[in-house]
Design a protein around this nucleic acid. Structure first.
Length: 410
DNA sequence: TCTGGGGTCCTAGGACCC
DNA sequence: TCTGGGGTCCTAGGACCC
């Protein structure tokens, strides 16, 4: 199943669709007066629109002057940027950048906090729109999907351009939002292709284009090569994807291990068999929070305890709302020097109970070094099962397990 | 005053079992 | 006198992604 997958023997055509500056674009629908201005989304713990509504009672949000919005230079906090508008990006501001650094680059940018409810609403809307046109859709987070065009009627016309255009148009009609789409023989190339013509673009890549369009790209453009692998590749003198492709598979395996080395070789040659997966079960659920200032386990005991309990209650609520129970309970913390420590413990039975989470997570916390100040605390539940699944029907938590007798010990 | 929050997958060692 | 081998589960850490 390399490039041919459908039973009819049609060449695989896989699309990757990426919403353009999604979080920011959603806000611009509500505040169209900010169009064209540098705006960044992220960081905030305050509800900006509540603030604006208070200050301008009776005035529609869309009529409040841009001058009334908070500026990046006045921002104080530890957040990072989730999305920047294209106007803000011209100043070098981009997602995942610390707000403080961004403020230095573009102090006059406006800041809005993320409105997750609104973002999720639009996320659902654009994905529903796609599924009505092409049913095989794989979720890749809130603003991205893969779509299998292969067997969709018309999905092969002009290499997928016709269908991509239809999807773009329908999303815009239903939401007012634009997106960029790449269509290629597989997910790996489609993902790169969707970036070729942003925003609001369509890019088609064929198998025979790999040398001309993929090989010149920086290694980091491959989805799966992050900062660490990039640094190692650079140190070995490999800068472009073509540089990787020029190496023997065995050489890559020598330097990167059997699994990753072989994958690097395949990826550089544009080979990728992964199917578009339309459904998947969650593996874990977690909640974590970075404190406004670093906290010390002993000196800030009360504050930390309240946060810890709250995290457990929120994870429990998430599990219950979504109908899951879990078996492995763990904590994560980040020290002031940014090192991370995790501890977890697997239970005999499944649970979604906040008190149980709190008790077991508390035991985990006792197993880490708490002499350093902490920056972040998180609670995680793994080994999930649906609450009504057969495996989750074990011994209920309130039934005592048989205690070991002396005989068991010998 | 750098550096969020929610995830997935992989590796590697040790326990434990057959 | 040298110590099998495979499998699975648990735990901790780390890379990477959106």
């Amino acid at each position: 199943m390399h490039s041919m997958s459908s039973t009819q023997g049609r060449p695989r055509r896989i699309a990757h669709l990426d919403m353009d500056a999604f979080f920011a674009s959603v806000e611009l629908l509500r505040y169209p007066q900010l169009k064209g201005l540098p705006v960044v989304i992220g960081g905030g713990r305050r509800r900006i629109d509540d603030l604006l509504r208070e200050r301008h009672a009776g005035l529609p949000l869309s009529e409040i002057s841009p001058a009334e919005f908070p500026l990046l230079k006045d921002y104080v906090g530890r957040g990072v940027i989730t999305t920047a508008t294209y106007a803000a990006r011209t100043f070098g501001v981009g997602s995942a950048m610390g707000m403080m650094k961004a403020a230095r680059l573009c102090p006059q940018a406006l800041v809005l906090p993320v409105d997750f409810d609104e973002v999720r609403r639009y996320s659902r809307a654009f994905k529903d729109t796609i599924r009505e046109i092409a049913p095989l859709v794989e979720d890749r987070g809130v603003d991205e999907v893969y779509i299998d065009f292969t067997d969709v009627p018309g999905g092969q016309r002009e290499g997928g351009r016709v269908l991509a255009r239809l999807i773009q148009k329908s999303i815009f009609q239903n939401t007012g939002l634009t997106c960029s789409i790449g269509v290629a023989p597989n997910k790996l190339i489609a993902k790169m292709a969707s970036e070729f013509d942003k925003p609001n673009g369509i890019s088609l890549v064929y198998e025979q284009d790999v040398q001309t369009r993929i090989w010149p790209l920086a290694v980091r453009k491959i989805n799966g090569i992050g900062p660490k692998a990039e640094a190692k590749l650079h140190a070995l003198g490999l800068l472009t994807i073509g540089d990787i492709a020029a190496r023997e598979r065995d050489w890559l395996v020598e330097h990167f291990g059997r699994s990753y080395g072989a994958w690097l070789h395949d990826a550089a040659w544009g080979r990728d068999d992964r199917p578009v997966v339309t459904e998947s079960e969650p593996v874990s659920m977690s909640r974590e929070t970075t404190f406004e200032r670093d906290l010390h386990a002993a000196r800030d005991r009360t504050e930390l305890g309240a946060i810890f309990t709250d995290l457990c209650e929120r994870v429990a609520a998430d599990l219950q709302r979504k109908g899951y129970v879990g078996k492995t309970i763990g904590i994560k913390l980040r020290y002031d020097d940014f090192r991370i420590a995790t501890r977890d413990q697997t239970l005999e039975h499944f649970t979604a109970d906040a008190k149980t989470l709190r008790r077991v997570a508390g035991q985990c916390l006792k197993r880490v070094d708490l002499s350093r100040k902490l920056r972040l605390l998180g609670v995680r539940v793994g080994k999930l099962a649906k609450v009504d699944s057969p495996e989750a029907q074990g011994v209920p938590p309130h039934v005592a397990e048989p205690a070991p007798t002396n005989l068991d010990l010998f």
